[in-house]
């Protein structure tokens, strides 16, 4: 049983538009059987934070191609992507590269 986690979830580059324009979200992930990883964080975000057009943020079990994910300011590709296990006080930033220019 994993303890509840407090993490910062942030959206930028236009991704925040799908979240009512709110960039920073300080959230508490409830304790659960499985450890929290990015895969189930995405499910949680879709259920709890995402306000509109989920397909513009999540495709399949991952983020839409073109959305960058930074965990504590490092590219998630360096950290195992969906399998990264969240730690308390982590910050996860989603930046869209698909908007504006």
């Amino acid at each position: 049983m994993a303890a509840p986690l407090s993490v910062e979830v942030e959206f930028g580059g236009g991704a925040e538009l799908l979240f009512d324009g709110v960039k920073k979200h300080q959230v508490t992930l409830p304790g659960q059987e499985e450890p929290w990883d990015i895969r189930n964080l995405l499910v949680w975000i879709k259920k709890n934070l995402l306000k509109e057009r989920p397909e513009l943020f999540i495709q399949g079990d991952s983020v839409r191609p073109g959305i960058l994910v930074l965990i504590n300011d490092a590219d998630w590709e360096l950290l195992g992507e969906l399998d990264y296990q969240l730690q308390d006080q982590d910050s996860v930033l989603f930046i869209s590269t698909l908007h504006g220019g």
Partner: peptide, 21 residues
């Protein structure tokens, strides 16, 4: 690449406008 442009802006803390026309 687009990815690097966005990350450069992020690491240099550049403030830009990102809404669709």
């Amino acid at each position: 690449s687009q990815k690097e442009v966005v990350l450069y802006a992020h690491f240099r803390r550049l403030d830009y406008f990102s809404e669709e026309c």
